[in-house]
Design a protein around this nucleic acid. Sequence first.
DNA 1: AGCCAGGCGGTCA
DNA 2: TGACCGCATGGC
Length: 282
Amino acid sequence: MYRFKPELFNLDYTLDCGQVFRWDREGDWWTGVVGDHVVRLSQEKDSGELLIDSELPPEFFVYYFRLDDDLPSIYESINRDLLIDRAINRYRGLRLIRQDPWECLISYMLATASSIPTIQKRIHLLSKFFGEELEAGYRSFPSPEALANADLSMLDKCKLGFRTERIKSAAQEVLSGELDFRALNRLEYRYARERLMRVRGIGEKVADCVLLFAFGKMEAFPVDTHIRQIIQHYHIDDNFFDDCSSLSRMGDWGREYFGHYCGYAQQYLFYQKRVEGFVSLY
DNA sequence: AGCCAGGCGGTCA
DNA sequence: TGACCGCATGGC
């Protein structure tokens, strides 16, 4: 157990905003599985200091929580209107997380057309049946090999529904090296996106989530049902509105409207919509 | 009961 | 292109 003082960081917002699915809160403490480590974290309300119960060093958490991002500059660059301004101020300190590509890929593939509690349940079941025990009650996320070799009847027990075959197939592509994360990481955003979308079960939205949360491509702008509803409800910029009548245009719109760090803007808007619905700007 | 959830792939005009 | 549909599952 040790202490660490991050700058401009809010642990609750960061872990609760819906970007990761393997953290649980009990009282003041969050417990999560990161790789093959069980990590416990708490943040003191007045000082903002982190209490870290983990064998992982502080440098890891700088990396994981993207504490090296210059958040004030990012806020300045994406602050285009009253709606995003409100989200930035209300959820100040929310940071994007650097997730493991494999876990992120499978998590968002099984997330399609599902509520967040359902997603968490599926990942829990996957880990229960195909992961390895780290300590009592905590299991690692399954390896590519474990899912690639899983038989469909077992995978079906994880309640993946119509996503079952797609996920097994994707696992086989990763295991064989046909889908290579290191190669993907070197690609520019748009080419990495095209590559990911050739995988069955990965469309624009899932590709953008993986590129944003696992590959740090800040110009990814995932358009899910909440983001679509926000754009339609507020008519955020009437001059641009004709350009974003369809889903795939909304992604291009977000990139142009918010700029290079549109991925951050997306996550703030998404979280604000989830917890507060359509907020009043007056 | 019926609609929606961090969608995707296919079809048809 | 754009609109619609089926696909499992669970929460409200």
